[in-house]
């Protein structure tokens, strides 16, 4: 019988934390999807060997401190303005791999104009869009992406579409714009989904390396704190309720 101590040896290591991630402990709640997506971006940067060529833009939202976690150059944008800042950086430094990381409140509410126009101009950037259907950072308020009937702190009886409109499928709109090359909707709730999502992020970064235009990746995510569920239950709730409204798969490219 092989003993555990004989297996846990450097030469047998098959999976470990990416070297692009810093030693800082994520401030995210236990089980938050942000952490998984950070890791996948780090792995892609490491595998493409583009650490010194990557410039990232962090948003306002729970991921406001993302610049603490990935060891690349960062700029911090005003709320919703990450695509505008990414535009500037990529135009000034066209050989860099520029990506903006945004939540759904940031991208689909206060920053709607910036994302639509950056994508319509076909800026050579990657957008990573974390759609957890809620304003996580500020205490779980309703977002444009909140599902019909979904309770939040500002819609305690559930979103009333007569009052607040319908869940905004902004990724579907963005896929219509000629400036976008690759538009996809992914998730990170299972090992298979994590592998697929990583492939999508890799493809997006490779496309930006070829200066092909805007690459847009929505990651349907959980905010277990805001949703008031355990991390495991939040994933189940997402599969049952978010995926029918935000179905996974490539929309374009």
């Amino acid at each position: 019988m092989v003993e555990v101590k004989d297996i846990i040896k450097e030469e047998n290591l098959v999976y470990t934390k990416s070297k692009i991630l810093t030693d800082k402990v994520f401030h995210y709640c236990p089980g938050c999807s942000h952490g998984v997506v950070h890791k996948l971006i780090a792995e892609v940067i490491e595998e493409m060997d583009i650490q010194d060529k990557t410039i990232a833009i962090s948003p306002v939202g729970c991921s406001v401190l993302a610049y603490n976690y990935l060891a690349v150059d960062w700029q911090e944008a005003a709320h919703g303005r990450a695509p505008a800042l990414a535009t500037a950086v990529s135009r000034l430094m066209p050989d860099k791999y520029v990506f903006a990381y945004q939540g759904d409140g940031d991208l689909a509410s206060i920053g709607t104009a910036e994302i639509i126009h950056a994508c319509n101009r076909g800026e050579n950037i990657v957008i990573i869009f974390i759609n957890n259907g809620i304003y996580g950072m500020t205490g779980g308020q309703m977002a444009p992406t909140t599902l019909e009937g979904m309770p939040t702190s500002t819609s305690p009886y559930g979103r009333d579409v007569k009052l607040a409109g319908h869940p905004l499928k902004i990724t579907d709109l963005i896929a219509q714009l000629p400036g976008t090359e690759y538009v996809t909707r992914q998730a990170v709730h299972t090992p298979a989904a994590v592998r697929k999502c990583k492939k999508a992020i890799l493809k997006a970064f490779q496309n930006v390396g070829k200066k092909n235009g805007t690459q847009f990746i929505e990651v349907v995510s959980t905010c277990n704190s805001g949703w008031k569920l355990s991390p495991v239950k939040a994933n189940e709730w997402m599969v049952e309720n978010m995926f029918p409204v935000y179905p996974l798969g490539d929309l374009k490219g």
């Binding site: 297996i7 047998n12 934390k17 991630l21 402990v25 995210y28 942000h34 890791k39 090992p191 994590v194």
Partner: peptide
């Protein structure tokens, strides 16, 4: 490595023989 893949905090190292 399934556990490692889904860990949001990247705190699992996986070994195989």
């Amino acid at each position: 490595a399934n556990c490692g893949l889904v860990c949001p905090d990247s705190v699992i190292d996986v070994y195989r023989v």
